[in-house]
């Protein structure tokens, strides 16, 4: 095993897959420099033909990825901020998601849409969003939201090898997080949840940065409440079985989601727990998510984004 930061884990995954398959390339704005460091340095090894710096043109970044994926390449399209993916709405939600389906299953679109997500960096309303629910809502898009360096690397490798469009969102505040990964090659398959902490009293379901929040709270409360933290790791496909198994054991569930509360990922996971494990619940499911506002700039963001104290209060209340 070796210790590695989250950002290096993604970088290693990209480097390994670029080496493994010459059809893989990266396309986006300033990917040669690497705005967040995830693609930094790759241009020295693979050259500008495979680490392709584009003009400021998100629509053609997404659309070109679709066009070249359907003709045999495996592009990783980088959007810098997930917020910028809205600019390429038609290309992501209609073209990438639906093309195979509407053309009778004759086309494969092996591509990755990669971007940073999330708040807690005081970057304002249009550089802080967690838009997972939009992707999870759209049939035809897979969705990866890693929470550790180990998962970040293994899931990126699976995302690149998948023959379908995969949205890969890494949290900008997790990039410095250190963790252990094996020296040898490994992949993490899409659609397998991971139990990040075992417990018996309360199930907390979370992804991305919220996993780290939940683990911190679980540790703080360990003398009082035994918290099980489940990280689905991919929201589509969603490993609901692991979540349900945990809820059947604990009888109590809290879903934590950095996305806006209304129609968010937490809403969907809560609904599925109700459909599949209602009889096992000893208390109403709780939902911790961002308040239904745009994310304000500066210090005000603390009033909208979910905080560890909110998770703590919910666990204490539900376990009571």
């Amino acid at each position: 095993m070796k210790e590695i930061r989250f950002v290096q884990a993604i970088n290693e995954a990209l480097e390994e897959e670029l080496s493994r398959d010459e059809k893989v390339y990266i396309i986006g704005e300033d990917v040669q420099a690497g705005t967040f460091g995830v693609s930094t340095g790759l241009v020295h090894k693979f050259g500008p033909e495979r680490i392709m710096d584009t003009p400021l043109s998100e629509t053609v970044i997404a659309g070109a990825a679709v066009g070249s994926a359907m003709t045999g390449y495996r592009p990783v399209a980088e959007f810098m901020f997930a917020d910028f993916m809205y600019v390429a709405g038609d290309e992501i939600f209609a073209k990438a998601a639906k093309w195979r389906f509407i053309h009778g299953g004759t086309v494969e679109l092996p591509l990755v849409f990669m971007a940073s997500m999330g708040g807690y960096a005081k970057l304002g309303a249009e550089h802080s969003q967690s838009p997972e629910s939009m992707f999870m809502h759209t049939p035809g898009l897979k969705l990866v939201v890693p929470s550790t360096p180990y998962d970040a690397k293994g899931l990126m490798k699976s995302a690149i090898r998948d023959n379908n469009p995969v949205v890969y969102l890494f949290h900008k505040r997790l990039l410095g997080l250190k963790g252990e990964i094996p020296e040898e090659e490994y992949v993490v398959p899409l659609g397998q949840a991971d139990i990040k902490r075992e417990g018996t009293d309360v199930t907390v379901v979370a992804t991305g940065m919220m996993v780290q929040f939940a683990l911190k709270v679980a540790e703080e409360l360990k003398e009082k409440v035994s918290v099980e933290v489940i990280d689905p790791r991919t929201l589509e496909p969603l490993d609901i079985d692991t979540i349900i198994e945990s809820v059947k054991k604990t009888g109590r569930a809290i879903v934590v989601d950095e996305d806006t509360k209304r129609c968010g990922v937490a809403s969907e996971i809560m609904a599925q727990i109700m459909e599949l494990a209602f009889d096992y619940l000893d208390a109403p499911i709780q939902r911790i998510a961002a308040a239904n506002y745009p994310i304000p700039g500066g210090f005000m963001e603390d009033y909208v984004l979910p905080q560890t104290k909110d998770i703590k209060a919910a666990i204490e209340a539900i376990a009571d």
């Binding site: 359907m70 290309e91 209609a94 073209k95």
Partner: peptide, 22 residues
């Protein structure tokens, strides 16, 4: 011919991708 689109104008950006492939 790899398909057609219900929204008008996606042709340009998808063709750019097919141009990259070419």
């Amino acid at each position: 011919i790899h398909g057609g689109s219900g929204t008008i104008g996606a042709s340009f950006v998808l063709s750019a991708g097919m141009g990259i492939t070419a």
